[in-house]
C-alpha cells in the first residue's frame, strides 16, 4: 500500500512538461539559422514569381519578333531581348517554371524509387537485399550523363519531351539514395521497438512505413535537398548541351545555350548573364538550406 501511494504522490508533484519532438527541435534550430532562412525565402520567392509568370508579364515568348532582335535592357524590356527578339526577363520567369518543375519532379521520383528499393533491401535482407543491391550497383556503375543523353536521344519524339527527360534522369539517379536509405534501415531495424512491432504482428509494409521510415526521415530530407540542387544542375547542363528540355521550351539551361555563340558571349551579356546568375543563386540557396537542415537534424550541434 505504502509504495503505491508514494508513487502516486511522485507523479502528481513533479510537473510533467512535455519535451519537444525531434522534428520540433529541428524546426526551431532551422528557423534560428539566418543563412538557411534567407535562402529559403529567396527560393520561395523565385518559385512563386516563376509560377505566377503568366500573370506578371504579358510579353509573348513563343513568337519570334524580328523588329526587336538583341535589344539592350531598357524600360520596355527590363533585361533586353534575345537574338529572336523575345523578352529575356519573361523567358527567365518561364524558364524558372520549367527548371524548378524538372528539379522537383526528378527529386520526388528519385527519392521515391531510392527509398522504396533501399528500405525493401534493408528490411528484408537476404536474397532480396543482394539482388536489389546488385541492381543498384549496376545503375551506379553507369556513366550518368552519357546514359541520360543516349536514352533521351532514343526516347525523344516518341513521348512528350519534358517528361521523357524527367523519367530518364530519375531512372538513372536513384542508386545513391537507395544505398544510403538501406544502410540507415539496416542500423535502425536492430532496435527493440522493431522486434516488438514484429511480435505484435505488424505487416512488413506497416513496419517500414510507420516505424522505420519516420526514423530515417531526417536523412532522406537532407538527401532530398542535395538531390534537388543536383537535379537543377543536371537539367540545365543537359539543356545547355542541347540534349535536355526541347529547344522551343524556355529553361535556364536553354537560355544559357545562346552563350555558345561568340557574338552573344562577348557583346550581348544581358542574354546569358541572368540565367547563369539565377542558376548559381538557386543552387547556392539550396545548398545553404541543405546545410541548415543537416545542422538542424544533428543532435550534437548547438546553435
Amino acid at each position: 500500500m505504502e509504495i503505491v501511494t508514494q508513487n502516486e504522490t511522485n507523479v502528481t508533484h513533479i510537473p510533467q512538461k512535455k519535451s519537444l519532438s525531434p522534428l520540433a527541435i529541428a524546426r526551431k534550430k532551422f528557423i534560428k539559422n539566418k543563412l538557411a532562412m534567407t535562402s529559403l525565402i529567396f527560393l520561395a520567392l523565385v518559385a512563386i514569381i516563376s509560377c505566377l509568370a503568366p500573370y506578371i508579364t504579358t510579353a509573348d515568348i513563343t513568337k519570334i519578333n524580328i523588329g526587336e532582335m538583341g535589344l539592350e535592357p531598357s524600360s520596355k524590356h527590363w533585361l533586353g531581348t534575345d537574338k529572336a527578339g523575345r523578352d529575356v526577363f519573361t523567358r527567365l520567369l518561364y524558364g524558372g517554371r520549367i527548371s524548378l518543375l524538372v528539379g522537383i519532379s526528378c527529386t520526388i521520383f528519385v527519392i521515391f524509387i531510392g527509398t522504396l528499393i533501399g528500405s525493401i533491401a534493408g528490411y528484408f535482407g537476404g536474397t532480396a537485399d543482394s539482388l536489389l543491391m546488385r541492381f543498384t550497383d549496376l545503375i551506379l556503375n553507369f556513366p550518368f550523363l552519357v546514359f541520360v543523353i543516349v536514352l533521351n536521344a532514343i526516347l525523344f519524339g516518341k513521348v512528350s519531351g519534358l517528361w521523357v527527360l524527367i523519367g530518364v534522369i530519375s531512372l538513372l539517379y536513384w542508386g545513391g539514395i537507395a544505398r544510403i536509405v538501406r544502410s540507415k534501415i539496416l542500423a535502425e531495424k536492430e532496435n527493440e521497438y522493431i522486434i516488438a512491432a514484429i511480435s505484435i504482428g505488424c505487416s512488413p509494409a506497416k513496419i517500414i512505413v510507420k516505424h522505420l521510415l519516420p526514423n530515417v526521415l531526417s536523412t532522406i530530407i537532407v538527401q532530398a535537398t542535395i538531390t534537388f540542387a543536383t537535379m537543377i544542375v543536371v537539367e540545365s547542363a543537359l539543356s545547355y548541351l542541347g540534349f535536355g528540355v526541347p529547344q522551343e521550351v524556355p529553361s535556364w539551361g536553354n537560355m544559357l545555350n545562346s552563350a555558345n555563340e561568340p557574338d552573344v558571349l562577348q557583346y550581348k551579356l544581358w542574354i546569358w548573364v541572368p540565367p547563369a546568375l539565377i542558376i548559381t543563386l538557386t543552387i547556392l540557396s539550396i545548398n545553404f538550406i541543405g546545410e541548415g537542415l543537416k545542422d538542424a537534424f544533428n543532435p550534437k550541434s548547438r546553435r
Binding site: 540542387a229 544542375v233 547542363a237 558571349l265 547563369a276
Partner: peptide
C-alpha cells in the same frame, strides 16, 4: 569553396571564357 560547390561547371566555363 562554397561558390565553387554551387557554380555548375558549364556556368563556370562560360564565365571563364568571357
Amino acid at each position: 569553396n562554397y561558390l565553387g560547390l554551387s557554380i555548375p561547371s558549364f556556368v563556370a566555363g562560360v564565365f571563364a571564357i568571357y
